[in-house]
């Protein structure tokens, strides 16, 4: 299983499966943060975006993610001020420039985006901004992997660990996972050659009957990771339980604001109220995110559910397994 959505995207974009022997099946993991963001969080963001004087900012991928009834692009079309940013620091700048507005950043992503979000909150604190807040939905990779491997309904022989996440976190934790579950893990990058190297290392370990972690993204990842980024992250954020779309509640798998920074929490500032969510029944996004099913096994895939009209999140983000399948695999002649 390749864990990260960026890896899934590269595998599809370069059709790497064509270059692999039949015996190797790649299972697409849960590593698309857009895909695992709970529906409830999208609904909350939409509700907040309609509040008076609010500018809601987020990453481009989040704009089209369907909530229960709507998405952020539709909220914008109906008058809400929703803006796409490339970095949370841009949202802080926006808040500083618009003192009469309340700028809310919908913060999603793994350990890759969390340090930047933490830095933005620190910057807002230093600037004494009172009109900046974040709706925090960060998630952590290792707890989700443990949940997947413990559930046992996905047949995973080896893991390609997410290179960018490991650039921040290092891979000590992945060593423990490899040991606990008796599987080989390879820290893998995102260029086609990186991914092939990751697969080669994992298969070699399997053939030799070894477990443990190997690093095949040496140019970016060190065992200890980026300690400065981690320190910033944990200075502002702390571990919490988190709901994963399609997977459910995973204990200690998310990050939320520490008490010292709770004044920046959009969820308590705006109190979007009780939001009840319903997932489309036909969508098997949960099974896909757990690696149990492939997109092609979904009866809605390519007919009821397309990138223009996504039913589930994996069809929305370009890194989602369904969207990647749709874009690169549908109609392919064998």
């Amino acid at each position: 299983m390749e864990i990260c959505g960026g890896q899934t995207h590269a595998i599809m974009k370069y059709n790497l499966t064509e270059l692999l022997p039949e015996e190797i099946t790649l299972i697409h993991g849960p590593g698309c943060p857009v895909c695992v963001t709970p529906l409830e969080m999208v609904d909350k963001a939409i509700a907040i975006s309609h509040e008076k004087d609010v500018i809601l900012t987020t990453f481009g991928d989040m704009m089209r993610v369907p909530g229960s009834h709507s998405d952020l692009l539709s909220a914008r079309a109906s008058g809400a001020d929703v803006r796409m940013v490339f970095s949370p620091l841009d949202s802080v700048t926006l808040a500083a420039r618009n003192p009469g507005k309340k700028v809310v950043f919908l913060a999603i992503g793994f350990e890759t985006t969390a340090p930047a979000n933490a830095l933005a909150v620190k910057m807002a604190a230093n600037l004494r901004l009172e009109n900046y807040s974040v709706l925090c939905s960060h998630v952590l990779v290792p707890p989700a992997l443990r949940a997947l491997l413990s559930a046992g309904d996905a047949r995973i022989d080896g893991l390609l660990a997410p290179g960018h996440v490991c650039t921040v976190t290092g891979f000590v934790e992945y060593d423990l996972i490899a040991g606990n579950f008796g599987i080989p893990v390879t820290v893998t990058g995102f260029e086609p050659v990186d991914i092939l190297r990751g697969i080669e290392a994992t298969v070699t370990m399997l053939e030799q009957g070894r477990t443990g972690v190997q690093n095949r993204y040496e140019r970016s990842v060190t065992r200890q990771g980026n300690t400065s980024a981690l320190n910033t992250m944990y200075e502002v954020l702390e571990v919490c339980d988190r709901q994963w779309r399609g997977i459910g509640m995973i204990p200690k798998s998310g990050l939320s604001l520490r008490k010292e920074y709770s004044r920046f929490d959009a969820a308590t500032q705006f109190k979007p109220g009780d939001i009840s969510v319903t997932e489309p029944e036909i969508c098997i996004a949960g099974r896909i995110l757990r690696g149990v099913s492939s997109p092609g096994e979904c009866s809605a895939f390519g007919s009821l559910c397309t990138p223009e009209h996504p039913l589930g999140a994996p069809m929305v983000s370009s890194e989602g397994a369904c969207a990647a399948w749709y874009r690169y695999k549908l109609n392919r002649q064998e």
Binding site: Y326, R327, R332
Partner: peptide, 19 residues
């Protein structure tokens, strides 16, 4: 890298990905 893939028609606006 020597493989072949389909180039689809664009769907919607291209949006920047986040990681």
């Amino acid at each position: 890298v020597g493989s072949t893939r389909i180039v689809e028609m664009i769907t919607g606006e291209q949006l920047p990905r986040i990681c």
